[in-house]
């Protein structure tokens, strides 16, 4: 178990784990991939402790909070393993990373991916998709962000106006929604 987190190379571990999504789809994934999801790992280890004879081979791990479409995306992310943690050395690299983050679907899909990564306690993926969503909203208006996340503004109009005046330049160059 010690090297599964460092070595995601599937050939080193041929064991498979079956995950069952909220819409009752079954996914057979490499153990190394499944172990990236700490919630799955925890469940798997608990199962093993409870039932030594089963040895995991026939275990189906239910994921009632994850839809099959979302899980498929998460697994494909795990397999691609983008170098999301390295610092971009230059502007082009940063742009490449942004493009890479853009591939994982619409902003709505990203919200689903973030929810799922959070539920699965998948830190690396959570960080990646959080960044992807931040990329999406960074040039958006205050109104867009409120609507997108279902947030109700609670500033008095004059308070908000004061903030807008204080850093008026931060409200320039905002995307049209």
């Amino acid at each position: 178990m010690s090297n599964t987190s460092e070595n995601p190379n599937p050939s080193s571990s041929s064991a498979k784990i079956t995950l069952k999504t909220s819409d009752n789809e079954l996914f057979e994934v490499e153990e190394a991939v499944a172990m990236k999801f700490c919630t799955v790992k925890q469940y798997f280890e608990d199962e093993k402790d409870n039932d030594v004879a089963a040895r995991g081979s026939s275990t189906v791990i239910p994921l009632p909070n994850v839809h099959s479409a979302v899980l498929a995306r998460l697994i494909s992310y795990c397999k691609k393993l983008p170098q999301s943690n390295a610092v971009a050395d230059n502007h082009e690299e940063e742009e490449t990373k942004k493009k890479e983050r853009k591939q994982y679907g619409t902003p709505g899909d990203l919200v689903d991916l973030i929810s799922a990564a959070n539920y699965l306690d998948f830190k690396e993926g959570l960080e990646f998709f959080n960044q992807a969503l931040a990329d999406h909203i960074q040039n958006k208006s205050v109104e867009y962000v409120r609507k997108f996340f279902g947030i109700k503004g609670d500033f008095e109009p004059h308070e908000e106006e004061k903030y807008r005046e204080e850093y008026a330049w931060a409200f320039e160059g905002v995307d049209e929604d």
Partner: peptide, 16 residues
Amino acid sequence: SWLPMKSMLRFRCVKK
């Protein structure tokens, strides 16, 4: 927390 500073100065207005 992943946003650039300019976006954060704008999104201060989103909510208290």
